[in-house]
């Protein structure tokens, strides 16, 4: 069955490249907000202000890392899954000998993989332009921790997306989730500002939410130093969220299948 997921990944990448102009221009969505954040941070620091305890170089690296992390570990409602449930496309998936969850996981991350390569190129050039160094100021230890965390966060991000998307079984139209997340997520995930600069009570809540593990922690790991002990706690908490969402998603899927109408 693994050959199926590899084959599916290849086909998905080919499909993503079918419309090259749209594909290339969609990077403006990454580029424009990133440029805005970096310029704003630089402007604030040149005026003598400081954001929290962050040094400018670390903050710039944080924003660049956050841009990459928020692309790769994005959550939301996925149109494909919602439509499969609403219009009966799920029928074909149900009768095939593969897992619908892993099928979508592969499609989701194959699309992301193409995107992330370009996002990394943008991130690298942004780093060179703003730091003036051709070799990014990232510790090897941080890189290693980032990749280990990514192994937990990538399934977590997809699990949350899958979980939200299969709410279509119950509500049919889940546009409201996308809208709420679109407003909230940049703040609560640490995409706009690092979470540690919020007041203590809010910070304590935000850094325990699953959204923090998607952008804030991966970006902090890349832009700063975490001891292995601190990192282990982050990893354990991310694993707990993974488990919680796995159980929650399984219940939703089981109940959703019972009321699935298989339209068409």
């Amino acid at each position: 069955m693994s050959s199926y997921y590899i084959g599916l990944g290849k086909q998905t990448i080919k499909e993503a490249m079918a419309y090259r102009t749209n594909f290339i221009l969609s990077f403006l969505v990454i580029l424009i907000p990133l440029a805005g954040e970096l310029l704003l941070a630089k402007f604030v620091y040149t005026k003598g202000y400081q954001i929290g305890t962050w040094q400018l170089n670390h903050l710039l690296l944080y924003y660049i890392s956050a841009t990459v992390a928020s692309e790769f570990f994005a959550i939301g409602t996925w149109w494909d899954i919602g439509n499969d449930i609403k219009y009966g496309g799920l029928n074909y998936h149900l009768i095939r000998p593969y897992s619908y969850f892993w099928h979508n996981f592969v499609v989701y991350y194959s699309l992301k993989l193409v995107f992330i390569v370009f996002a990394l190129i943008i991130a690298y050039f942004a780093m060179v332009i703003f730091s003036g160094n051709f070799i990014p100021d990232i510790q090897l230890l941080s890189l290693l921790q980032f990749f280990i965390l990514a192994l937990i966060v990538a399934p977590l991000a997809f699990l949350i997306t899958f979980c939200l998307s299969i709410l279509t079984f119950f509500f049919m139209d889940i546009d409201f989730i996308s809208k709420i997340l679109g407003v909230l997520l940049p703040f609560i995930s640490g995409n706009i500002l690092p979470l540690d600069i919020f007041p203590a009570t809010i910070r304590e809540i935000l850094i325990k939410l699953p959204s923090a593990y998607l952008v804030y922690y991966p970006s902090c790991i890349l832009s700063g130093n975490y001891s292995w002990k601190e990192f282990s706690w982050i990893l354990i908490e991310a694993l707990i969220w993974l488990l919680i969402f796995w159980i929650f998603t399984s219940i939703l899927w089981f109940r959703g299948r019972k009321i699935y109408e298989a339209t068409g």
Binding site: Q11, E15, G89, N91, Y92
Partner: peptide, 15 residues
């Protein structure tokens, strides 16, 4: 088993 539902696509459209 196999299934075909008239009017419901299952193949990738763009490749």
């Amino acid at each position: 088993i196999g299934l075909f539902q008239g009017g419901k696509g299952q193949l990738i459209w763009d490749i």
